[in-house]
Write a protein that binds this DNA or RNA. Structure first.
Length: 465
RNA sequence: GGCGUCGUGGCCAAGUGGUAAGGCAAGGGUCUGCAAAACCCUCACCACGGGUUCAAAUCCCGUCGACGCCUCCA
């Protein structure tokens, strides 16, 4: 039984889907107006692993991730660049899709966009007005009436009274209650806009997700996810809108990832402490980013610095060490030892599943993988041949695959490879003559080329490092 | 000020009543011409102060501190 921490109840709960073996998963995507950063990568990877794990456990997952392509920031940036806002956002949608592919994030089942959901958004708002959950203001805005929603604040644990006491709530003169929020914003002159019963305008931020959810997944969904910075107001308002509109519970489980921290602060576009996904991938692999995410709980803040990145990289090397072939002169393992390795593969699999079933406890699942890594390496040291290693290595591949790790060994061009082989041949000759000085010199040369040398009884092996 | 999450070894991080997983780093060892890789060994009384209990990192109260949200934000 899978258990999930549900933000709505602040407890771990048994995961029971609306329909057997099917999961409706909606994850808030990004607002597309500039490069996405590694914080977005973290969120995307977290939910990619959720999706991959649910599929591994036999669920058919319908995974929806939206793009917010109509928004103040997009309009501002487009104005600054003298570009059409929808062209700009389309450009960044394609860019983000490439980021995700580079990170080995599986494409969502669908990627709805605000600009393509306008009729439904308008219909949704009309429905809310009809039910007196919303009201048009004289200036052409439409607001959601928070006092009409008796359990408003249930996700974030806030009460309307508390929020009114807060110093930073601004009372808009068009609003009946300071916490009322815009469903529709009247267009300012020259702004991109759509026709509506309330005049030209565009949707507020929250209504789009309610509408796209309804369009893609229906009135009720299993899991709604996103960064924990979206809990309030975004997800709170989504709940208010959708439940007021349908009269049914919206999402059963709300899951939120923690924030990626750079220098002790949340990485965010507003703070400007950003490392883009493009820049990250210039020096590190997608696997490193994924490993970084896996090393901690998805709900906790992720400490992102050189030290943690190095640790992630080394940890990956360790996992990869188990996937190397048997030594050339492997004499074969005794039957008992081979059976032991098979048993370890099986118990690792069980431990992995038990860990991941418990609210995606990836650090614990990783610990199980390292046990298998150790067992495989020990077996190899003890003379296991490739056939004997294969089942355990396949199990390791299977489980790391659930994490979306690719575990590729580095490669070089064929010319470089030819050069390396020549140097190694020369070195072997020197070693035969016990010319250690020359041998070590050649090893240094190879190291400079990025080649690691390993000598053993049965000869020299090498790999790109 | 309000709401929420949290404070475990040098770093990252599991563990939510019975005397602390794992990874990285570090030190020692096996192997090696020397290395490297792999393997073996060593390395914490869990922010602080009270309390509950036969027993607490784990429950309760308090203090201090960190982070997130309350404004756009994955």
């Amino acid at each position: 039984m899978i258990r999930l921490y549900n933000t709505l109840t602040r407890k771990k709960e048994d995961f029971v889907t609306l329909e057997p073996n099917r999961v409706k998963l909606y994850v808030c995507g990004v607002t597309v107006y500039n490069d996405a950063h590694v914080g977005h990568a973290m969120s995307a990877i977290v939910f990619d692993i959720v999706r991959r794990y649910l599929e591994y456990r036999g669920y058919e997952v319908k995974h929806v991730m939206n793009y917010t392509d109509v928004d103040d920031k997009i309009i501002n940036r487009a104005n600054a660049l003298g570009e059409d806002p929808l062209k700009l956002s389309q450009r960044y949608i394609e860019d983000y899709a490439k980021n995700l592919a580079d990170l080995n994030v599986l494409p969502a089942t669908s990627n709805p966009q605000v600009s393509k959901t306008m009729p439904l958004i308008i219909k949704f708002i009309e429905g809310l007005i009809e039910k007196e959950h919303a009201y048009p203001a004289p200036n052409g805005d439409v607001y959601f009436r928070v006092v009409s929603d008796e359990d408003y604040g249930k996700l974030s644990g806030r009460k309307l009274e508390d929020m009114q006491a807060g110093a930073r709530v601004e009372v808009g003169e068009m609003k009946q209650h300071p916490m009322d929020f815009a469903l529709w914003k009247a267009a300012k002159p020259g702004e991109i806009s759509w026709d509506s019963p309330w005049g030209k305008g565009r949707p507020g931020w929250h209504i789009e997700c309610s509408a796209m959810n309804l369009a893609e997944l229906g009135e009720q969904i299993d899991i709604h996810g996103g960064g924990n910075d979206l809990i309030f107001p975004h997800h709170e308002n989504e709940i208010a809108q959708t439940e007021s509109y349908t009269g049914k519970q919206f999402a059963r489980y709300w899951i939120h990832n923690g924030m990626l921290q750079l220098g002790g602060e949340k990485m965010s576009k507003s703070l400007g402490n950003i490392i883009s996904i493009h820049d990250f991938l210039k020096t590190r692999s997608a696997d490193v980013m994924r490993m970084l995410v896996l090393m901690g709980s998805y709900r906790a803040p992720l400490i992102f610095n050189d030290e943690t990145q190095d640790a992630a990289e080394k940890s990956l090397d360790r996992v990869k060490s188990a996937l190397r072939p048997a030594s050339p002169s492997a004499s074969g393992l005794a039957a008992g030892a081979a059976a032991e390795l098979a048993a370890q593969a099986e118990s690792t699999k069980q431990a992995f599943i038990a860990a991941m079933d418990d609210d995606f406890n990836s650090p614990l699942a990783l610990a199980a993988l390292y046990e298998l890594v150790k067992a495989i390496n020990t077996a190899r040291d003890n003379g296991a041949n490739d056939d004997q290693l294969a089942p355990a290595q396949n199990a390791l591949r299977e489980l790391t695959g659930v994490f979306g790790l690719q575990l590729k060994e580095k490669t070089g061009s064929s010319e470089a490879e030819a050069q390396v082989k020549a140097l190694i041949a020369e070195r072997n000759e020197a070693r035969k003559q016990k010319n250690w000085a020359r041998s070590d010199e050649l090893r240094d040369q190879l190291k400079a080329l990025g080649v690691a040398i390993e000598d053993s009884k049965d000869g020299t092996t090498w790999r790109w490092s």
